[in-house]
Structures are given as C-alpha cells and as structure tokens.
Nucleic acid binder design. Structure first.
Length: 492
RNA sequence: GGUGCCGUGCCCAAGUGGCCUAAGGGGUCGGUCUGCAAAACCGUUAUUCGGCGGUUCGAAUCCGCCCGGCACCUCCA
C-alpha cells in the first residue's frame, strides 16, 4: 500500500502542507474543548467536527490516533481582567443567571453542562477522544508550571498574580501575526495594570481568594490562567511536542499564541508542528451572538424536529476554513441528503437478505468513488467534494436492483463512507429509537385504516381511498404505496 | 486605528492561472413509473464567477482601486 499524504492547512506557516507525525503513522492531536458554563452551541460543534474529520481521515489511511480534547471547567473571566479582576467569572455569572438557579454551586453547574456536551457530541456522531482531561484535574501541574516559568525567568509575580513576560519569548506573535509591534500599533482601550511589566503579558495564575473555585498555591489562594491549562494537559498526555493542535479561529490569539510561548519556554522544544483553525459559523447570514439571541443548540434544533445527523451534515457541508452559513433551509437540504444515505443503507440490507445471484455491477465504480472521497478529505478536508462523491455512490446503490454481490460492495462502500464522514448512520443505532409518539392502540387503529383504504383501492373507490389517506395525514401520518403493493406509514 | 479572511446560479456550496463553454446538493421545470400522490429514476436550470481597470497567448483564479460581508486585536469554538 502506498503511503497516503494528508495535506492540511497549517495556520503557523500559512500554507497547506503534509501533516507529518513525529512517530510515523501515529498522530498525536490536541483539540481545545469548551468551557462548560452553558450548552455548547452548533458553532462550537463546527470546530469540534473539523477535529473529528481529521481523526476520521487519519484513521481511514491506517494511522493510529491519540486524540486529547479537554474540558475547561474553570471559569476564567468574562471581561478583561488585566487591571483589577473586576471581570466576572463565566461560571459564577452562569450560576447567578436564571438557568443557574437549579445548581447548588459552580461544580454542579460544570458537571451538568459537561454531561450535556458529551450527549450532544454523541448525537452529532463525533468520534470519542482517547482522553478528555479536565482543567480542574490538572491544577497541580499548572502550579508547577508557573513555578518553573518563574524559576527560568519567563514569568514573574505581581500583587495580582503570576504573569508571563512576553518580551522573554521572541517568537511571540508568530502564529497570529499579533507581534509586539503590531499590537502596539493597534489603538484600543486597554485597561492598564501598572503591576505588569508589559501590557501584553498574560496571566498564568490569578490571585483571588473570593473566587468560587480556588486552590492554594505558593502565591496564595487563586486560580490558574486559561492558557496554561492547555499547555499542561497537552504535555501530560501527548508529550513535549505534539503533531497537531486545533481549535476555533478565535483561539488563535491570544490562547494558542500564549500556549506556544509557555510550552516552548518550559521545554525548550517546539510545542506543536501543525495548527488547524476552523472558521466561524454564521446563522442566517449573521454572526451568532448573545446580543442577537441567535444561538442554536443541538437540543434546541432537535426539539424542533431536526435529525441530529442532518445537523452534522449541514455543519460539514462547507470547507472548514471558510465561514459557513447555517440556515433552516440548509438543515432541510441536509435532511434530504441524509435520507438518501438511509435509503441506500436499507436497499443494501434488503439485498443482503434476498439478493439474486449475479455479478457485482457496482463494486468497481463504488471503490473508485470512495477513493475520490478519501482523496478529497486528504486534501485539506474538502468535505463538499467528499460528500458529493459519497452521494454519487448512494445514488448508484439506490438506482440498481442489487444482486447479492452488488449488495456486498454497497455495504462495504457505505461502511467506509460512514467511517470517513459519519453521515450514514449512528454507530449504536442510538438514532431516534423513534420515541414512537403513537401508542399501540393508535397503531392498531392506523393499521385498520390502511386496510380499509386497501379495500377501497381494490374496489377502485379512489375517492374513499384518498379521503382515508387525507384523514391520516391530518394526524401527521404519511402513507406511502410501495411498488410491490405494500403500504408503509410514518409519523412526522 | 492595526491584522487577516471572504463575495460563484433562485438557495447552500466546490473550484484559486489553461482539462471551467464553473463539481455536488436543495429548489424549479419537463419526462418515466404509479388509479392519484409520495418515493425513485432520466433530463432541464450560470457563455458566467461583487464592480471597474490592469498583467497574461490565456483569469472566477494574479495585481490595483472601489463596494459589500466576516473575524481577531489579551481569556467567545
């Protein structure tokens, strides 16, 4: 087997280049996870989905993947806290909000939203990471890192905390382009902290004995800075130098810039060889923002009847490096496509049961299409191309009357496509065990009506047949006459 | 004010110097099938890529200006 190259845009060198792993065939990958102070919205999931697709693509070419995706369960601050820590803590703020009333404390709140996040993760059919470390489980290492950075002269203590001295790290700004010079040029209201040596210095530890989550450190009571958590966790699970690090485009600066500065100062080695950032999702042409109140959540969309796989499909239907516009129409389009895969899946299952003898008429073509889909993914995750190839394959499967041999090829194709893109079916069939809103009594009545309509059809009483169909339609029950004369129904 | 990204048919969205007289999906319209529907299948739908100039034998793709949208600029994926 020839070695496949996985080409991926690298935000650091600003070009598409092969993803190189330190250990051949083993990708060590870190993804910045959410702060669990609220439900993760579909914008969050868009960036997690990019990471998921990287993992799936790597697995598809036979790589081993060690994937770490953290959970930020320390609140940090909502506002600029440079001066005096008046910025509110996100978790504390959430606790005081209306939704927060149900929780006794921040820990409970974090636990609740973490569980919700994991549920949504599964619903959208993302691959499970190997490790999901939590910031609060690694506070000790974060304190040790702070001490070591002070010892090595990269950080210093002030009355308000421990700060990283940006001037000590010449490469600061290489990822985001926000070098010291360009930062100084930008005129912006910045709260001044006269204790800091440079206004660009960032917090590794915040002193605060009023904080709802606090730990004791050599600097007294307080809590760790946001950036140090990822530096520490990446190192703990993946080593000093990792192959790939991903996150949303907003993470690039300051978060990832600061991670690089801290980690490389700590180890003296390159922190990460390849950086990947996902562009923001827009909703109905607008930015998702609190002020516009247009946040979409997985559970909210599902409550309105959305199929989670369709949500997934809609979120990966554009290339990850460009803004994608999420609309209701887009979700409907996605649903139509997901149904195509489902039908192909069913056609294959049926043909595997009762397929006729005969040659495999689709195998070669399907194999070719899968190859093209995989190539598209290997080419900087070109999901639109990959999806179009997958759809072509599904079309071929549904079009033909499948022989047993063809069905086997179809099954192989759909399995491969599902492994690569996750849009054919859920692994555990957890999908909608259709909480049948219809009771068995209802069901008996519906079946009785269907029989009545059949009788009317035999009698060629089309008026009666149609009125029965309409009657059921009024109850949101759709009848479908199949080509073999049977009738199926579904409630919408 | 600084930095970066983007603008493709009715909608979503690939393509980033010649294989583009521009993928794929949705929708539309026409057809096959079916009592009629639905589904499925076949065909149709951009001489054109925000505007204006320029470079080139050749541009949606490169350059300039303009218009429009987005992101980051110290803790929002």
């Amino acid at each position: 087997m020839t070695e496949k190259q996985f080409r991926l845009y690298d935000s650091l060198s600003r070009k598409v280049k092969p993803l190189i792993t330190a250990e051949p065939g083993h990708l060590r990958f870190y993804t910045c996870g959410p702060t669990v102070y609220s439900y993760a919205h579909i914008g969050n999931f868009r960036s997690f989905l990019s990471a998921d697709l990287v993992v799936r693509t790597a697995l598809a070419i036979g790589w081993k993947v060690t994937w770490v995706s953290n959970i930020t369960d320390v609140g940090h601050l909502t506002d600029d806290d440079i001066a005096d820590a008046t910025g509110e803590d996100k978790m504390e703020k959430a606790l005081r909000s209306k939704e927060g009333e149900q929780f006794h404390n921040v820990w409970e709140l974090a636990e609740y939203y973490e569980a919700a996040y994991r549920e949504d993760w599964k619903l959208l059919n993302l691959v499970e990471p190997d490790v999901r470390p939590k910031a609060t489980q690694h506070v000790r290492e974060q304190i040790l890192a702070a001490e070591e950075l002070i010892e090595k002269g990269f950080a210093y203590e002030t009355p308000t905390g421990v700060y990283f001295s940006v001037d000590k790290f010449p490469g600061y700004g290489k990822l985001s382009g926000n070098t010291q010079e360009s930062l100084r040029k930008g005129v912006r209201d910045v709260v001044l902290d006269e204790n800091k040596k440079d206004q660009s210095d960032f917090a590794i530890w915040k002193k605060d004995d009023k904080h709802l989550m606090q730990w004791f450190s050599p600097y007294g009571w307080g809590f760790p800075g946001w950036h140090i958590e990822c530096s520490v966790m990446a190192r703990a699970y993946l080593g000093d130098t990792i192959d790939l690090h991903s996150g949303g485009e907003d993470n690039k600066f300051p978060h990832h810039e600061c991670e690089i500065a801290q980690s490389e100062s700590l180890t003296g080695k390159p922190f990460c060889e390849h950086w990947s950032h996902t562009a923001f999702l827009q909703v109905n042409g607008q930015k998702m923002s609190k002020s516009l109140g247009n946040f979409y959540y997985v559970r909210g969309l599902m409550a309105k009847g959305a199929d989670p796989l369709a949500i997934r499909f809609a979120l990966i239907s554009g290339v990850y490096r460009k803004n994608l516009n999420f609309t209701d129409q887009g979700l409907e389009d996605a649903k139509t496509n997901i149904d195509r895969f489902r039908r192909a899946d069913i056609a294959v299952a049926e043909a595997l049961e009762s397929g006729s003898n005969g040659a495999d008429t689709v195998g070669a073509e399907l194999e070719d299409l899968y190859g093209q889909a995989l190539d598209a993914m290997l080419s900087d995750l070109n999901t639109p191309i990959a999806i179009s190839k997958a759809l072509e394959g599904a079309k071929i499967i549904t079009r033909e009357t499948l022989s047993l041999e063809s069905a086997k090829s179809g099954e192989r194709f759909l399995n491969l496509v599902n492994d690569l893109l996750g849009i054919v079916r859920h692994p555990e069939d957890m999908v909608m065990v259709e909480e049948s809103k219809t009771s068995t009594a209802d069901e008996a009545r519906i079946l009785e009506r269907i029989e009545a309509r059949k009788a009317a059809k035999v009698a060629k009483d089309w008026g009666l047949a149609d009125s029965i169909r309409q009657e059921l339609l009024n109850e949101s029950i759709v009848l479908t006459d199949n080509s073999d004369g049977s009738v199926s129904w579904s409630s919408t």
